[in-house]
């Protein structure tokens, strides 16, 4: 009962709540973003503590990589376009009239009530009620992989995962439409040290991403974690302008976006063709099929996440669509 880590748990939980408050209450937006990144870091630690290394891996890869870079990019854009040196100028453009005190109090009371209801429900729930553990461990021999989370993601609940890949695809389509025809920014000068670092680190990140993907079959890891780590390579290349998206690469990028969804759905159709239900893989081929899907979905996820960060579709500079299209 007396877990020596209980003090650590309490401290971690307290700091997570404090950071959540700080994200919303600090005045400077840049500070809020940095605090949010630290919040992601600590929640990944908490998830590791709750014996969920898969979730911690996903949060670590996506939270410290893509999300932080996206938030910083958006803030940079906001301050740049309101062309004030301070963030007050940016706030003047977006902020509206002051909210009456009564509304704020009513909101706070409403949220407090929601929290109270959740707490009552949570504390009143039976300790460790029946979960899906027994079902999953019974079905594991038929799944073709040795790691339960991967089995759930790619076999037992494969429909969910298919839809998740579709959501990523929809997101990149939406972002390309929203940012139609924006122009490119010039390359930053990061210097020699960075060039050496990139030469050493980028291949290492590729290796680690592939390792996470490969390991997913029997231990924590898998397509999403691997894809998010690989996407970091794309982010670094895009940020330092080692790679500048060309209009001629658009077709390739589109193929990469649909690759994961296409293969996932294709395998499902193939399995149905064999007289089975969509994701009921034949046991002797299950591992091969799952690894095939995971590998291609990883490529898709990596390219899509990098494209989501980059935002605008690469178009030729003198293309008919320009920024002033409204």
């Amino acid at each position: 009962m007396t877990d020596p880590l209980i003090l650590f748990d309490l401290l971690l939980a307290g700091s997570i709540v404090a950071l959540a408050v700080a994200v919303l209450s600090v005045r400077d937006l840049f500070t809020a973003i940095v605090v949010f990144i630290v919040f992601g870091l600590l929640s990944a630690l908490a998830w590791a503590r709750l014996a969920a290394p898969d979730v911690a891996l996903a949060e670590a890869a996506i939270g410290t990589g893509v999300t932080g870079a996206l938030l910083l990019k958006t803030l940079h854009h906001l301050r740049h376009f309101s062309d004030g040196q301070t963030q007050d100028a940016a706030r003047d453009l977006t902020a509206v009239q002051p909210v009456p005190m009564g509304v704020t109090v009513a909101n706070a009371a409403f949220c407090g009530l929601v929290a109270l209801g959740l707490a009552v429900a949570f504390l009143g729930a039976p300790q460790a009620g029946p979960g899906f553990d027994a079902l999953v461990s019974d079905a594991m021999p038929h799944s073709g992989v040795a790691h339960p989370v991967t089995a759930v993601l790619l076999n037992f609940r494969a429909y969910d995962t298919l839809m998740e890949v579709v959501v990523l695809l929809a997101a990149v389509i939406a972002v390309w439409q929203i940012e139609r025809g924006l122009t490119e920014a010039p390359a930053p000068a990061l210097g020699m040290v960075w060039a050496g670092f990139a030469r050493l680190t980028l291949p290492a990140i590729v290796v680690i991403g592939t390792y996470l993907l490969w390991k997913g079959a029997e231990a924590p890891g898998g397509a999403f974690q691997g894809g998010a780590v690989l996407a970091a390579v794309g982010l670094l290349l895009l940020l330092s302008r080692l790679y500048v998206p060309q209009p001629s690469h658009r077709g390739l990028a589109r193929w990469a976006f649909v690759l994961g969804t296409g293969v996932f759905a294709g395998v499902a159709l193939l399995v149905t063709g064999g007289g089975r239900v969509a994701f009921q893989y034949p046991p002797e081929h299950a591992k091969t099929l799952i690894l095939l899907i995971e590998g291609l979905v990883t490529i898709s996820i990596a390219v899509t996440l990098a494209a989501l960060f980059h935002g605008r579709e690469p178009v030729a500079l003198n293309a008919p669509e320009s920024r002033h299209d409204t």
């Binding site: 990944a44 410290t64 930053p188 680190t201 670094l236």
Partner: peptide, 20 residues
């Protein structure tokens, strides 16, 4: 592995900040 991902991706946010 989680620590390794943190170690590798620690640079991404920083590079994003400086490059932007």
């Amino acid at each position: 592995d989680v620590a390794m991902v943190f170690a590798l991706l620690a640079a991404v946010t920083l590079v994003a900040f400086v490059a932007l």
